[in-house]
Amino acid sequence: MSDEADSKQDQAPKHAPAQGDVALRLSGLSKRFGSTRAVEDVTYTVARGSFSSIVGPNGAGKTTTLSMISGLLPPSSGSVEVLGDDVWRDRAAAQRRIGVLPDRLRMFDQLTGAQYLAYVGSIRGLSKQDVRSRSESLLDAFDLRDNANRLVVDYSSGLRKKLGLAATLIHQPELLVLDEPLDAIDPVSATTIVEVLESFTNRGGTVLLSSHSMEFVQRVSDHIAVIVDGKLIAEGDMDEVRGELTLEERFRHIVRGPEETEGLDWLDISFR
């Protein structure tokens, strides 16, 4: 690990939330695929009611980490606790408290949007009355009312993402785990989604997401973890991690990326 990365770890907060205030606790979380170590010894906590983000370059291990947190991919070692429930010792109990949006969400696309929400609500064990009332509220909150009776197969990528987000909330989870929630979302819909997520955290819920948009992460997050090559490089409150720089600038410094593209001089065009 570089000296700069070590210094960033030194700047991470040394305090941790009290036991009752912890929504998510990762302890030595690691994942290997054969001889490849995708995630290595990731340890940190996320406080209840926080809006937390995981950032890192492509292939850094973000999706693998989120999949282990949400109960979709078993870790090779380490543990994940959601509000005190061990995800891999009592998976059913933990998953009742989690709403998950994978990056590549598969849907039953021969259902309408309303039918899809009803289906998700029913497999989550909700009563018919709760399914109906919550579906109606979610269709309005995510501005899906006009598309409620269209087949999902006819939805755009952005509409599918909004419907998937709505479905993550129908069982009233306490922790949302979202992989690239704003991918393929237009700016107006993005504003709607952010408002819903901020309302969720204001009511005591916790959001954990990954995103490649540093501007978005800086705007909405109060906690951040930076993962590079499967290792936790920096973690803490947003202001503590980024310092006086923008998050994009700090991220570039942490991962030691190039300040500018080199070796493409042949792209220069001369009009002489």
Rank of each mutant, 00 (worst) to 15 (best):
S2W: 05
D3C: 04
E4R: 12
D6K: 15
D6M: 10
S7A: 14
D10V: 09
A12G: 15
K14C: 02
H15R: 05
P17S: 02
A18D: 11
Q19E: 14
G20I: 03
D21Q: 15
D21C: 03
R25Y: 01
S27K: 12
L29K: 08
R32Q: 13
G34R: 13
R37I: 15
V46R: 04
A47N: 09
G49V: 09
V55N: 03
G56Q: 06
K62N: 08
L66A: 11
V80T: 05
E81K: 10
G84L: 09
D86C: 06
A93P: 01
Q95M: 13
V100C: 02
P102I: 11
M107C: 07
F108T: 12
D109Y: 07
D109F: 04
Q110T: 14
Q110K: 09
A114N: 04
L117Y: 00
Y119D: 02
V120L: 05
G121W: 00
G125K: 13
G125R: 09
S127H: 11
S127K: 13
S127R: 13
Q129N: 11
S133E: 15
S133M: 07
R134S: 07
E136D: 15
A141L: 12
F142M: 08
L144A: 02
D146F: 08
V152P: 08
D154I: 06
Y155G: 04
S157A: 14
K161E: 05
L165I: 06
A167Q: 06
A167M: 08
T168G: 03
T168D: 02
P181M: 03
L182E: 03
A184F: 10
P187F: 14
P187C: 13
V188A: 12
T191A: 14
T192C: 11
I193C: 08
I193N: 09
V194S: 11
E195G: 07
F200S: 08
F200W: 08
N202H: 10
R203F: 03
R203N: 14
L208Q: 08
L209Y: 06
S213C: 08
V217L: 02
V217I: 13
R219G: 10
I224A: 04
A225D: 07
A225V: 08
V226Q: 01
V226Y: 01
L232S: 14
A234W: 05
D237R: 12
E240S: 14
R242W: 00
T246A: 00
F251K: 08
H253P: 00
V255W: 01
R256H: 09
R256W: 00
E262C: 04
E262F: 05
W266S: 09
L267E: 09
